[in-house]
C-alpha cells in the first residue's frame, strides 16, 4: 500500500450550510484517505452529507473546516482529472448520444475535433452503446441513459471518478447488470472511484473499502475492507462471510439510525 499514491485526502473536514432555520452541519470531523485506483463506496442514510463529500472532492464547494486535497494539492477549484456521474443521467435532451459524450469538449473549448470524436467512440463502445451514437436521450432506456452519463464522465479520461448514487434511479435488474459492467470498466481502465450509495449490496459488490456514515451531522462511523477478492460474481456475493459482512453493515446503519 505504501507505494500507491494517495488520490483523495480529507483532513478534519467539516461543512456547515446556512439555512433559513439556522446553520446546518452536514459534515463533521471527516478524515478519509483514498489511494489511487482504489474503489471506495460511501454508504449512509439520506441526508448524511454523502453528496457533500463528493462535491467537496469535485471542487464544487470548499469546506468550512479542515482541508480536502487531491493528489496532494488542496482543492479550491474543479480539476480536469475528476469526472462526475450524477444520480440522474442529466443528459442534454436535444443532443444525441455522441454529442452528449463530447459535450465536455464542446463546453470547455467551444469545439469538438476529430480526436474528441475518436475518444468518444472509444468510451461509447466501452459502455456498450456502439450503434446508438445518433439516438436522442428520450429514445433510450433509463439504464442506457446512465451509460451515456458514465461515458460523458469517462470522456476526458479522468483519474478520479465521482459517482453520486448513479444507479439508484434504475430498476433492480438493470442496477445489478450496471454494477457488474462498471466493475469491468474499472478493471480494464483503473480509476480512483468514490461511489456514493445507500444500498448495502451495491457497496459490497463494487467496493474495495466501504466508508459508513451517520446522519446529521455526517460523520464516518466505520471504514471497512470488503472481504472479497476480484473479479467478483453473483456466487461470491452469496458466500456466508460476505453475508455476515453485509449484516454487520446493516447493524451499523440501523444502530446509528436508532440513536437519532
Amino acid at each position: 500500500m505504501a507505494l500507491v499514491p494517495e488520490a483523495i485526502r480529507f483532513k478534519a473536514v467539516g461543512q456547515t450550510f446556512a439555512t433559513e432555520s439556522g446553520p446546518l452541519t452536514a459534515l463533521s470531523g471527516v478524515d478519509l484517505s483514498i489511494a489511487q485506483h482504489e474503489f471506495v463506496a460511501v454508504l449512509g442514510p439520506s441526508g448524511c452529507g454523502k453528496s457533500t463529500l463528493l462535491r467537496l472532492t469535485a471542487g464544487l464547494m470548499t469546506p468550512t473546516k479542515g482541508h480536502v486535497s487531491v493528489f496532494g494539492h488542496a482543492v479550491d477549484t474543479p480539476r480536469d482529472d475528476v469526472g462526475i456521474v450524477f444520480q440522474q443521467a442529466t443528459l442534454l435532451p436535444w443532443a444525441n448520444v455522441l454529442d452528449n459524450v463530447t459535450f465536455p469538449a464542446k463546453h470547455k473549448r467551444g469545439r469538438v475535433d476529430d480526436m474528441d470524436r475518436a475518444r468518444a467512440a472509444e468510451v461509447i463502445e466501452a459502455v456498450g452503446l456502439k450503434g446508438f451514437e445518433t439516438r436522442l436521450p428520450a429514445e433510450l432506456s433509463g439504464g442506457m441513459q446512465q451509460r451515456v452519463g458514465i461515458a460523458r464522465a469517462l470522456f476526458l479520461n479522468p483519474d478520479i471518478l465521482l459517482m453520486d448514487e448513479p444507479f439508484s434511479a434504475l430498476d433492480a435488474l438493470t442496477r445489478d447488470a450496471m454494477g457488474f459492467e462498471l466493475l469491468k470498466l474499472w478493471q480494464s481502465s483503473p480509476k480512483t472511484v468514490m461511489f456514493i450509495t445507500h444500498s448495502i449490496p451495491e457497496a459490497v459488490l463494487l467496493a474495495d473499502r466501504i466508508v459508513v456514515m451517520s446522519a446529521r451531522p455526517g460523520r464516518i462511523i466505520a471504514d471497512l475492507r470488503v472481504p472479497l477478492g476480484r473479479p467478483r460474481d453473483e456466487r461470491a456475493l452469496r458466500a456466508p462471510e460476505v453475508q455476515d459482512f453485509a449484516a454487520h453493515l446493516r447493524e451499523l446503519l440501523i444502530a446509528k439510525e436508532a440513536m437519532i
Partner: peptide, 19 residues
Amino acid sequence: ELIELSRSLRAPQHREITQ
C-alpha cells in the same frame, strides 16, 4: 447537475447560458 457539470469543467460563463 448540469450547472455543476459546467462548473466542474470550468467552462466560460457565456457557454453555460448558450449551451
